[in-house]
Simulated assay, not measured.
Amino acid sequence: MPTTACQFFYQCDNCKHLLKPKEGDCCVYCSYGNVACPPIQEGTNCC
């Protein structure tokens, strides 16, 4: 997970499906991870 920026798209290595953030989230880590991305955890703007 990047610590200085958000990742908007992620392609699954197994099925090749392209994930994008759910509405209202800034990145795929906030939508699908078990913790928010580092910028959000630090209280700064994600993107």
Score class of each variant (00 low, 15 high):
L18S: 05
T3A: 00
C47H: 08
Y29G: 00
T4N: 05
N45G: 10
D25Q: 10
Q7E: 14
P39M: 00
Y32A: 01
M1I: 07
I40D: 04
C15L: 13
C6G: 07
F8I: 05
L18N: 10
C6S: 05
T44D: 07
C12T: 12
C12D: 12
E23Y: 10
T44S: 08
G24E: 05
F8M: 01
C37R: 05
C27P: 13
C47L: 12
C26M: 07
S31K: 13
D13H: 15
F9Y: 12
E23P: 04
S31C: 13
V35P: 00
V35H: 06
T3M: 01
C26Q: 07
P2A: 07
E42W: 06
Q41E: 13
G24C: 05
G33L: 08
K22R: 15
S31W: 06
E42I: 01
F9P: 02
P39Y: 03
C46R: 01
C15R: 05
P38A: 13
C47S: 11
G43W: 07
C12F: 02
K22T: 10
G24R: 08
T4A: 03
Q11N: 14
Q7K: 02
F8K: 09
N45Y: 09
Q11E: 11
H17Q: 13
F9R: 15
Y29L: 06
G43L: 12
T44G: 09
K16G: 01
Y32F: 15
C47M: 06
V35S: 13
L19K: 10
G33Y: 08
C30P: 09
C6P: 02
T44P: 01
F8D: 00
K22G: 14
V35G: 05
C12S: 13
Q41A: 10
L18Y: 04
V35Q: 09
H17D: 08
C46M: 02
C26T: 02
P2M: 09
D13R: 15
Y10V: 05
A5C: 06
D25L: 08
F8C: 02
C6E: 06
D25K: 15
S31R: 13
C30Q: 12
K22V: 09
M1S: 12
L18P: 00
C15F: 09
A36D: 09
C47K: 10
V28F: 04
P39L: 01
Y32V: 03
K16H: 14
N45M: 09
E42F: 11
C15D: 11
N34I: 12
F9L: 12
Y10H: 14
K16P: 05
P38Y: 07
G43K: 09
I40F: 04
Y10E: 15
C26F: 11
Q11S: 11
K20Q: 12
Q11G: 02
Q7C: 08
P38Q: 14
K20F: 14
A36R: 08
C46S: 07
H17K: 10
L18T: 12
Q11R: 15
